[in-house]
């Protein structure tokens, strides 16, 4: 944010502001970037919104079938992943803070930590996907017919499709996020960021938090509702 108070006397003089030609002031540039990012995140909300709406509609139509799927969700792994993501949000915000303080070493440290959490999330998610594949719960590709509850075979398929769609889209956002963090890491290594110029760190931070928040909605909707009633 433009109003961010830059602590005086950290690394003076050499800090570049990287003002692009068409902006009048760094504050205007920062304002524009922030509003642009928030607007982008709103489009993301609506992008996921389409899937959440489908989920709501079908859950309402096929309540029992949807509830029956919860027992196939690994709450332990899902819960671990929730914790991992919350930690990654913390390290991300610490990275932003480090950038604002022109603390390059901390910035690099926290970016790497965030990336490690991100990768950990994806690995755990991968184990979950693998388990689903083994159990034949992947609609369209490897669907065994939901033999324990054949009465829900049709409708559970829709839930599992939505599960893969929503978590897959979320995972894709995580992958993009890790790519963006890599970019930040290189930039940080090259000493691009300082107390006067940290917009990219903050913007990608916003994105990262958004992706976390999506998971905060996905976890209860897919894992917890109707779990082993």
């Amino acid at each position: 944010m433009a109003e961010t108070v830059v602590p005086a006397g950290t690394e003076p003089a050499v800090e570049e502001v990287h003002l692009r030609h068409h902006f009048a002031t760094p504050a205007q540039q920062m304002d524009a970037a922030t509003l642009g990012m928030w607007t982008f995140l709103i489009t993301e909300v609506l992008f996921f919104g389409g899937m959440f709406a489908s989920y709501a509609v079908y859950r309402n139509m096929y309540l029992d079938a949807f509830a029956s799927t919860s027992q196939y969700m690994n709450v332990v792994l899902g819960g671990t992943n929730t914790a991992v993501l919350i930690c990654s949000s913390l390290t991300m915000v610490l990275a932003v803070r480090a950038a604002q303080l022109s603390n390059r070493r901390h910035l690099i440290l926290f970016l790497i930590l965030t990336m490690i959490f991100g990768v950990a999330f994806l690995v755990i998610k991968g184990f979950e996907y693998h388990a689903k594949w083994v159990e034949g719960l992947v609609p369209g590709l490897h669907w065994s017919g939901y033999t324990e509850h054949p009465e829900f075979a049709y409708h559970a398929q829709i839930l599992f499709f939505l599960y893969f769609c929503m978590t897959g889209m979320h995972a894709l956002h995580m992958v993009v996020g890790i790519g963006l963090l890599t970019f930040l890491l290189v930039q940080a290594y090259r000493r691009v960021f300082n107390a006067n110029y940290f917009a990219p760190v903050e913007m990608i931070g916003l994105y990262w938090h958004f992706v976390d928040i999506v998971w905060i909605f996905l976890f209860p909707l897919l894992y917890l509702i109707g779990h082993r009633r």
Binding site: M51, P139, G140, I158
Partner: peptide, 27 residues
């Protein structure tokens, strides 16, 4: 527009893998 994007994506999945999201035969 993002809602159109996700809708078309779901449509594509349905067309490729027949997962039932818009198929009345599977609910």
């Amino acid at each position: 527009t993002p809602v159109l994007a996700i809708t078309l994506l779901l449509l594509a999945f349905e067309r490729i893998a027949h997962v039932g999201i818009f198929d009345p035969n599977i609910g």
